[in-house]
Nucleic acid binder design. Structure first.
Length: 593
RNA sequence: GGUUCGGUAGCUCAGCUGAAUAGAGCAGCAGUCUUCUAAACUGCGGGUCGCGGGUUUGAGUCCCGCCCGAAUCACCA
């Protein structure tokens, strides 16, 4: 039982005996005592004051005295107004620490056969351009969320729906056909996704010229956009694609395979992966059946022109189109179809979509529709909605080339990590290969932590001119602390470990043990709130406190063998929790740096 | 206009289900390396928690109204 629970139950018993109050231990949440007061845990006694018919100070004192007399874990207490600060018996912490050290996979809960199956959809790229910083945020959030949910004892399936068809793909294909001269990733030395992205931009450039030309000839902007020859050609290509024209399909398959090779490289570098990948070209015809089924059941209705709609006005929303008058599907229909396929493939209990907040409305509608169509997880589907990454000038626009490219950014971060390491003469004894590996870990750690430490809902600004920091509340700071601890532990390989159970931990040591003890609860909270940021902040806090401890006390130079063993164990467990916590964020921690 | 989400230090952000004098980092200034890795540690300055009401012993946190910003409300995806 955790120390929080011990105190909660004791206080619950105390107020019952003292004042006849029936308050469940679960209603009493001790908080960590503020550093300026003596104590480990604090009980706010105001809620009991009325029933006790006494002043807050008196109530605090009475409960405090009761605890000292009846609860062995409580050493002493002090009272500030209605705040009862409890000092835990110092040696009690040793038992807490020993228990942590003896727990395999501390903090995480393994899934069982009965665990719910959660599917997390993330990444979901278009195959007409390379990944940019916004995708990176998505990928990291999705991966981290999946890891956190696993750590909370869920079965998790990570999935990706690749948007591999549509007019935007045809644009790249057309541009390649017209101006590509047979360029391939091999012939140009470009990564496949970048090569395709360049043709997408090229299409847009020529298209804009055509539109301008037509407008100069007197057409309205609307007309010009519709009538531009390139657009007509792209549409024709899409039509041929849908008819499964062999030549178009061959080109499409070839160009997509280049893109996938490029994506795979970026995914690998980011350290994200998927259990099951769906392709929109396989799923885009799905869903129609389900909609027609809904039509029969009266969940949808048909207009005179043949289009099919859902009336969502009773849910405070609008009417939503599901099948065009020509019978073809829209985005929403596809998502219903994908949901159906997924449910055939996996007995999903919960579905989480990691998709940007610009699609909040879409998922509101999807949830209602899936529910009405009988998906048991439809109503409670989670749209893990995250904010945009913006530049100081505003939104990133891929067509205008104002995007922060994922691969470029990763390279920059890794190079910066290398430069810093060289300048500061770090890891001098490391081989060049090891130095590269460390730079990769640190550079990516900086990037990932930067993106994950903030509340996902918030839009964030990324200034390419100010590189991501390596000092302060950053990934490298945390990684550095881990490396330092590992260094101590390497040096301590021959140090004899002795029983430390009767040592009285000093304030800093007790504080660290208390923080370590919070870890499982933090993981649960992060899972409940879908918040990697909670883990990030916890780990930062832990590490910050460890560094203070490291500065004030020596582990290896401590002459008392028992105290030394205690400090070694604390250090070991801090390193372990840091590694686990950062692992939940998809961030590696190096042995040295 | 409807819906959803944001507004906390110069900048980037924490602040969980209400609780003590609102916390970090960056930037600025001043200190600490013959001592387990200084990507660290210590100190200083910096705030009308968007505004106004309300509930409460107690509100950055809950409720109402308003202001500002973002997204969205397509026979696009």
């Amino acid at each position: 039982m955790s120390i929080d629970n011990i105190i909660s139950e004791a206080v619950s018993k105390a107020v019952n005996e003292l004042y006849g109050l029936e308050i469940g231990a679960d209603k009493i949440a001790p908080q960590t005592t503020r550093p300026e007061f003596e104590g480990n845990l604090t009980i706010v006694v105001f809620p009991f004051v009325k029933a006790a018919r006494k002043a807050p100070e008196a109530v605090s004192n009475e409960i405090g005295e009761w605890l000292v007399k009846n609860e062995p874990a409580v050493a002493r207490f002090n009272v500030v107004k209605g705040f009862l600060n409890i000092v835990i018996e110092p040696t009690f912490w040793n038992g807490v620490l020993a228990e942590i050290a003896a727990t395999p996979d501390y903090g995480t809960t393994a899934a069982t056969d009965d665990s719910p199956l959660v599917m997390v959809e993330y990444s979901s790229p278009n195959t007409n351009k390379p990944l940019h910083l916004g995708h990176v945020r998505n990928n990291l959030l999705g991966y981290s969320l999946a890891e956190i949910l696993k750590a909370c004892g869920n079965k998790v399936v990570k999935t990706n729906i690749v948007n591999d068809r549509g007019i935007h793909i045809c644009k790249s294909m057309l541009a390649w056909k017209k101006w590509g001269n047979g360029a391939t990733p091999e012939s140009t030395g470009k990564k496949g996704d970048h090569l395709i992205g360049d043709f997408y931009v090229l299409f847009d450039k020529h298209y804009k010229e055509e539109v301008a030309q037509l407008m100069a000839e007197g057409q309205s902007e609307e007309e010009a956009k519709q009538n531009a020859p390139l657009m007509l050609e792209a549409r024709e290509m899409l039509r041929l694609w849908e008819q499964k024209d062999p030549e178009v399909r061959r080109l499409w398959a070839m160009m997509n395979s280049w893109v996938y090779a490029g994506f795979d490289e970026t995914y690998r570098r980011l350290g994200v992966d998927f259990d099951k990948i769906y392709y929109e070209s396989d799923t885009y015809l799905e869903g129609k059946e389900k909609v027609l089924e809904g039509l029969e059941k009266g969940i949808m209705y048909r207009k005179d022109d043949g289009s099919v709609w859902a009336d969502l006005t009773d849910a405070g929303l609008d009417h939503k189109l599901l099948l065009r008058s020509d019978g073809t599907s829209v985005y929403m229909t596809q998502d219903i179809g994908t949901a159906r396929l997924r449910y055939q493939d996996f007995p999903i209990d919960k579905m989480i979509y990691v998709v940007g907040n610009e699609q909040n409305y879409h998922f509101q509608v999807l949830s209602i529709l899936l529910d009405r169509l009988g998906f048991k997880w439809g109503k409670d589907l989670v749209h893990f909605s995250y904010g945009m990454v913006e530049l100081p000038e505003g939104k990133m626009k891929s067509r205008e080339g104002t995007v922060v490219d994922a691969d470029d950014l990763i390279d920059e971060m890794v190079n910066a990590a290398k430069t810093v390491a060289q300048e500061q003469g770090k890891a001098k004894d490391a081989s060049p290969e090891e130095a590269d590996e460390i730079a990769e870990i640190v550079g990516l750690g900086a990037l990932k932590y930067f993106l994950l430490k903030v509340d996902p809902r918030k839009n964030m600004t990324f200034n390419p001119k100010e590189s991501i920091d390596f000092n302060g509340n950053t990934g490298p700071f945390i990684q550095y602390t881990h490396a330092r601890i590992r260094s101590i532990l390497r040096n301590a390989a021959d140090v004899e470990r002795v029983d430390y159970s009767s040592v009285e931990p000093n304030e800093k040591e007790a504080d660290l043990i208390q923080r370590l003890a919070d870890f499982p609860e933090v993981i649960k909270e992060a899972g409940k709130n879908y918040s990697p940021a909670l883990i990030a902040n916890y780990v930062y806090d832990l590490v910050k406190n460890y560094n203070q401890f490291y500065h004030d006390y020596s582990v290896l130079k401590e002459t008392d063998a028992a105290v030394r063993s205690l400090r070694l164990t604390i250090s070991e467990q801090v390193a372990r929790v840091v590694k686990t916590g950062m692992g939940l964020l998809g961030i590696k921690v190096p042995e040295r740096m």
